[in-house]
Each structure stands twice: as C-alpha cells, then as structure tokens.
C-alpha cells in the first residue's frame, strides 16, 4: 500500500480554521441533555425520612437523620447511579440534569425536612397493637448511624 507524507496537513489546517472545540468553562458551559445525570435533588416537603435511600445508596453518600430531621448528601461520594430515585417510595428524589458547582471544601449538603410523624391513634389496651403504617415507626433504628456533621477541616488548596 502506498505511503504518503504530510497526510495530516489537511486535518491540521482544518483545526486551525475551525472554532475551538472546547468551551471557556466558567464563562460558557456545555449544554446538558434531558437525560444527563447531574445531581440528586430532593423535594423535602414530600420526604418522610423513611431511610430507604440511606440504606440502599451503594456508596453511602446519603445520610438521613431522623432525630435531627435532616436529609444530607455528600456530593463527592455520590456516583449519580439514580438508585435512590428508583427506590424512593414517596418519589421525592429526582435526578436533575445540571451539575453542581465544584466545591472548595468537602462537605455534605444538608436539607432540613419538615416532616412530623403522625401520632398513632390510641387503641384499646386489650387488642394487640398493630404495626404503624408509617415507615418511620416500622423500621428499626440503624445500628451504626453515620456522622452527619460536615468535616470541619477545609482542604488545603
């Protein structure tokens, strides 16, 4: 087969005349698609602190605190797998298609959740008490609760 010199010239000249293939990032951003997995967002009004996202998250990025009534996500651990969105029984989690801004220090995004568990109705003492239909009451307390406090040390750079 024939060998040719300078075959790259056409490609290189084309690159010279073309607009840059990159975008100047903070000033301009690459368009996102409808399907892009950007970040997890929560509608805190619908959340009932059921802990399912916390337990099923493959990387343990989500931490739900039932006593403090907060839902927290460590964006650096989240792998955008969409699993929490799939398993959420109240459909309060959503995968937004834009990315969060880069962080300057490691921290969790903590969202307060205004949820008050319904008070169980008083029952006659003789009847066996049924299990509450609220997942908050039905689920056992997790043995090792993760630390929800954001780490106080900021990174050096």
């Amino acid at each position: 087969m024939k060998q040719k010199p300078l075959t790259m010239t056409r490609v290189a000249l084309g690159s010279l005349l073309r607009k840059p293939a990159t975008v100047p990032y903070p000033a301009a951003r690459k368009p996102v698609y409808l399907a892009t997995r950007g970040h997890i967002a929560i509608e805190e009004d619908k959340c009932n602190l059921c802990l399912i996202c916390d337990r099923r998250c493959p990387t343990g990025a989500i931490a739900v605190d039932r006593t403090g009534k907060t839902w927290a996500i460590d964006r650096l651990r989240c792998i955008q797998c969409n699993h929490c969105v799939d398993v959420c029984p109240r459909k309060c989690l959503a995968m937004e298609n834009d990315y969060t801004t880069p962080m300057q220090m490691k921290r969790s995004d903590v969202v307060p959740v205004p949820f008050t568990p319904p008070q169980p109705k008083p029952k006659p003492a003789a009847a066996p008490a049924p299990t509450s239909d609220s997942p908050l009451q039905a689920k056992e307390e997790r043995p090792g609760e993760r630390n929800h406090e954001p780490p106080d040390q900021s990174s050096a750079d």
């Binding site: 698609y33 409808l34 399907a35 892009t36 997995r37 792998i79 955008q80 797998c81 969409n82 799939d86 995968m95």
Partner: peptide, 20 residues
C-alpha cells in the same frame, strides 16, 4: 450522554433489561 445520561458510565444496565 443523550441516550443514557452518562458520558462514560452509562448506568443503563439492569438485571432484567435496561434501566431507562
């Protein structure tokens, strides 16, 4: 990215079909 949502990690596989 437009079809699966991720650039290199598709996140579209699932036991029993496709996730999206």
């Amino acid at each position: 990215e437009e079809t699966s949502g991720g650039r290199v990690i598709f996140g579209a596989a699932k036991v029993g079909g496709c996730r999206r």
